[in-house]
């Protein structure tokens, strides 16, 4: 009896909470692909998917069914275990980060003290899925794509780290709930506007999205690191990439756009519950992701590296110093 009380029931509650988070997330990922095609279609004066179901709403499910019914191909020269491990790793990493994202006050799976560091750690692991798939495929295109992506992700991680430090200086805590609560008076996007821009652009590079999607540059590398993958293993990469996009938008919202807080703490705005605000803000950031993809041409590789190391790194370092200086001078240190 005691065993059931101490282990089985809490375990079941945790599993139920995880399912309550992961299932809507996967639906969101499916509809993000749909949203992307609709938005880019509208920007290019097309209709986008509109055949399957009303307004094409069942398109993501049709795509998923198509991928599931395809054959899984294992290249003969591939390192089988690592080849199969890589997509799983990418997908798992894109899900576990959600454990610390707060949807409302107290509405979080694990409210840990070092939430931001956990997110940073998980996002820095994302590169392994890419490197492992590129190497295990035993194909030169996949390997080139993997090397590009690894170099890119490591470069932009550095400036993301400094941006996070700037935010932490203003909050005085690594806990994500505390970071959101610290934005009650003003969202950090306003006083730290340059850092917000740096963070958003670095997030684009970190998730390998246009205009920094060199790892999957169609014109020169076919499809980059997952060129040898098919069927479900490809679908896992795809899901992982889009879940990462939503995750990076979520982090942007938590760090800079006040998380679940209403934009103004007055009548019509604070009637809306927190999670709704959070989801609306994430959708807004995701829309900008797609807008950027439809608008900008791809960067050249040396320009990408220059932007990361010679522009963002000094700029974010400077802002860390300035923010710390201002906080100490005016005695605002939390």
């Amino acid at each position: 009896m005691e065993f059931i009380d101490t282990y089985v029931i809490p375990g079941a509650i945790i599993v139920a909470q995880i399912m309550a988070l992961v299932v809507p997330l996967l639906v969101a990922v499916a509809y993000l692909t749909f949203f992307e095609r609709k938005v880019i279609g509208a920007i290019q004066l097309r209709k986008g998917p509109n055949v399957v179901g009303p307004f094409g709403l069942f398109q993501p499910f049709a795509d998923a069914l198509k991928l599931l019914s395809k054959e899984t191909i294992l290249p003969a020269g591939a390192n089988k275990i690592i080849f199969l491990l890589a997509p799983m790793l990418t997908f798992i990493l894109s899900l576990i980060a959600w454990a610390v994202i707060p949807f409302d006050k107290g509405m979080v799976l694990a409210d840990i003290n070092v939430g931001v560091l956990y997110l940073f750690a998980v996002s820095s692991l994302g590169v392994y899925g890419v490197i492992m798939s590129g190497w295990a495929s035993n194909s030169k295109y996949a390997f080139l794509g993997a090397l590009r992506s690894a170099a890119q992700m490591v470069s932009y991680e550095v400036s993301i780290g400094f941006v996070i430090i700037t935010v932490l200086l203003c909050v005085g805590s690594l806990n994500l709930t505390a970071i959101v609560e610290a934005q009650r008076t003003v969202w950090f996007a306003i006083p730290l506007l340059p850092m917000f821009v740096v963070f958003f652009i670095s997030a684009l590079a970190e998730t390998n999205r246009a205009p920094f999607d060199l790892p999957e540059g169609e014109s020169e590398l076919v499809a980059g690191y997952f060129v040898e993958y098919s069927s479900m293993s490809f679908a896992l990469f795809f899901l992982g990439e889009y879940a990462n996009m939503i995750l990076m938008s979520g982090i942007t919202v938590v760090l800079f756009l006040g998380g679940w807080l209403a934009p103004f703490d007055i009548a019509p705005f604070n009637w809306v519950p927190g999670p709704i605000w959070f989801i609306l803000k994430i959708s807004l950031v995701l829309f900008v992701f797609l807008w950027v993809r439809a608008t900008f041409p791809r960067y050249r590789y040396d320009q990408l590296m220059r932007l990361g190391w010679k522009v963002f790194l000094p700029l974010s370092l400077l802002w860390v110093v300035i923010t710390a200086g201002v906080l100490v001078t005016f005695d605002w240190v939390p």
Partner: peptide
């Protein structure tokens, strides 16, 4: 020691081991 755990993952797994693997 959750801080040390996270730093271990960020520094060793996220940065040093990536270059190593490279």
């Amino acid at each position: 020691a959750e801080f040390l755990a996270m730093i271990l993952v960020v520094v060793y797994v996220g940065a040093v081991a990536v270059l190593f693997l490279f």
